[in-house]
């Protein structure tokens, strides 16, 4: 909202993938494809729409795997606390 998409807000090293509509630089092609769908959904071409749908599938699959890891981390933290408290309060 406060940041514009002008280059002043970015610090680019190497080749950035740029949005064909607003020129915003992205570190990966995947992120650019997602951005085109999110920000320029009404003007994008059919090919871009297809690529966006694929990228969204990919993103939600990755998110699912990420959430599995999060559940793992949560279980570990819970275990750590239950163990610590029972250790401290029993002694």
């Amino acid at each position: 909202m406060t940041d514009t998409t002008t280059d002043a807000a970015f610090d680019i090293d190497g080749d950035a993938e740029r949005c064909p509509y607003c020129g915003r630089p992205f570190a990966t092609d995947h992120l650019r494809t997602l951005h085109v769908g999110e920000a320029h959904g009404e003007t994008m071409t059919e090919e871009e729409a297809e690529r966006y749908a694929d990228a969204e599938d990919q993103e939600s699959d990755d998110l699912f795997v990420f959430h599995l890891k999060v559940l793992g981390a949560l279980s570990f933290i819970m275990f750590l606390f239950v163990y610590s408290y029972s250790f401290v309060w029993s002694g």
């Binding site: 610090d11 680019i12 630089p25 990966t28």
Partner: peptide
């Protein structure tokens, strides 16, 4: 960590 090209001050 993003990764992003956004400048640190921003």
């Amino acid at each position: 960590s993003g990764p992003t090209y956004r400048a640190a001050p921003h």
